[in-house]
Nucleic acid binder design. Structure first.
Lengths: 336, 336
DNA sequence: TTGTACGCGTTATCAA
DNA sequence: TTGATAACGCGTACAA
């Protein structure tokens, strides 16, 4: 293990000089600096981060907590965060929490242990009130999801408005029997999308049908989407459009419709949410509400570094969304 | 920031006693121990990892380097690694390298900087000879891919044998015009699968047709698979079966075939590789060669911790694979 | 059984 | 412009 004093000896200077040469702190003779850097190269020296962190009381590391890597929705967000971290001279390390509270807490405890400067959470159930304790003491940003009424910084789209956009589109296609394929979790986004759905129906003068609201699994699995959609199609008066709150659920709905002998979008319209990359794989291609994933990542990380640097930053960041119209939706046709 | 001496003061003992109470080092009076633990709880004390790491010269962190999070193939591997790390009292942090050499090197430099005890690489191009330098100095394990002829620990299946299994299956279905949809990278797995394909043809007395070997993008993208498959279907004598070296490529091939008006598997058989979870989404469901992803992760992590602890561990771990027969393949039928 | 004191490798203050 | 030196918080010989 080569240390700073090895370099000092090799270069014939003091450790203070080596440190200065490396961190550009204070004035230093360019010639000395060169000499030091040569020694650094010759000895393959890298500063010991533990020692540096101990002294500086900061780590140059941020943590990203994600419930599952399977969800393609996170891919661009993670890239956005990583890129921004690099720009700030930090590393972004991802922790796979698998939606397990013990793992989540274990990861967040790394903050208390001075092993990371801050953390970004990629999913937050609305009952995670214990988060307040961490947010009070450490830089924390919630990405995509957040806890209303809590003073924790968060970045997301306006899910209610986005939901209304989807509904405006479907209503414009003359659909009146519109179902909502939600998920069995308490994410704020889930609640907001449901609220937007209900509001839009009422605003259009349509009485919401309770049977038209069904739920997939908490993690939006394909099979749960398929099952929930099948239940809808088995109704005596099935919907002519299904508004799904994730692309994976929508894929399940598409397959359910096809297996029921229905053509998408001729017989039934199906829309997704998020616009994940896998969408290109499924046929028909999904009409979906696109989230600005990369920007969500960048914005979250930027806010986090502001918190870390004790710079002012708003508690709430709302990013723009847009509807992407593809093949899985169309104007309502009369059944033969 | 509460430190060990705060706890010592609060408990009315010395810092040595606090340290002993926490790390179970040496003899300590149970009563004193209780007293200390009470103070620890009251003060919400957590040891400063930087200080501890500096002193112990180890971090309790391993790094996982992954080229892209989009690839569902990695999901179970990552879980296997994380679970094993937890068992060893370590945390597994994931670095998104995006297949970028600078990012990869930056991540690996964390080892030299004493910010991680070891690393697992989830993809390795065969020209990454600079890896030897790191492997010589630090615990390193290659998962799924490896560099033949280099002394770096690795865990994978026998790709050549797996390829032969796929071919034996297709040949048993009486296919003779079998194409190979490979990828434009130099992964050892890619080369091995191609070798198994060629060998099997020759062993079956079939002369390999150069036009039947086509290439998708280095990262196995859906669209590249679709394009490559289209080229195959445009041949004057198109294949009756396409052996793809990834599920994503196979999905592309399926769509290409369908758009060309072919039925899968009636008109053409298509097989994938890996058996990633998204497979349940695509119809027809893919026949594919399943890799033991979770076990690959567990085995890699176990080997890494052996290296970290200077325990003996074989350089090469070969895990079992198996063929999963689903809907995308069938017996060769005569075209009408 | 407990406490004192040194050192891990840095950074940063202060004096030269 | 440089060097000596005191922290940073913890673990652990060694002494008590």
């Amino acid at each position: 293990m080569t240390t700073i004093s090895d370099v000092a000896t090799h270069a014939g200077v003091s450790i203070a000089t080596v440190s200065r040469a490396l961190s550009n702190y204070g004035r230093i003779n360019p010639t000395t600096r060169e000499k030091v850097l040569t020694s650094v190269g010759a000895l393959h020296y890298s500063p010991n981060r533990s020692a540096r962190n101990l002294r500086r009381n900061q780590t140059g590391v941020i943590l990203i907590l994600t419930p599952n890597m399977t969800n393609p929705y996170y891919a661009s967000i993670l890239t956005g965060i990583s890129d921004t971290a690099t720009l700030h001279g930090s590393a972004a390390f991802i922790c796979n929490t698998l939606d397990d509270q013990d793992r989540t807490i274990a990861a967040l405890d790394r903050l208390r242990q001075h092993q990371a400067d801050g953390a970004i959470l990629l999913s937050t159930d609305t009952d995670s009130t214990w988060l307040d304790d961490y947010a009070a003491d450490f830089p924390l940003v919630l990405c995509s999801e957040f806890l209303p009424g809590h003073d924790i910084a968060h970045v997301s789209i306006d899910n209610r408005a986005a939901s209304c956009d989807v509904m405006r589109y479907l209503l414009g296609l003359e659909h009146t029997r519109i179902a909502h394929l939600s998920a069995d979790n308490t994410y704020q986004s889930t609640l907001d999308r449901l609220a937007g759905y209900r509001e839009s129906l009422i605003a259009a003068g349509i009485t919401p049908v309770p049977e038209y609201v069904v739920y997939g699994s908490p993690d939006y699995s394909f099979s749960s989407g398929k099952a929930a959609a099948q239940a809808l199609l088995d109704l005596s008066e099935p919907p002519t459009a299904i508004f799904c709150i994730s692309d994976t659920l929508a894929m399940g709905a598409v397959v359910a419709a096809q297996e029921a002998g229905l053509r998408v979008p001729d017989d039934i319209s199906i829309t997704g949410f998020d616009d994940v990359a896998v969408n290109e794989v499924i046929r028909p291609q999904l009409t979906t509400l696109a989230q600005p994933c990369y920007a969500l990542g960048v914005t979250s990380a930027t806010a986090l570094f502001a918190l870390i640097g004790h710079e002012p930053t708003p508690l709430e960041h709302v990013l723009d969304h847009h509807l992407v119209i593809r093949q899985s939706s169309g104007i309502k046709t009369v059944r033969v």
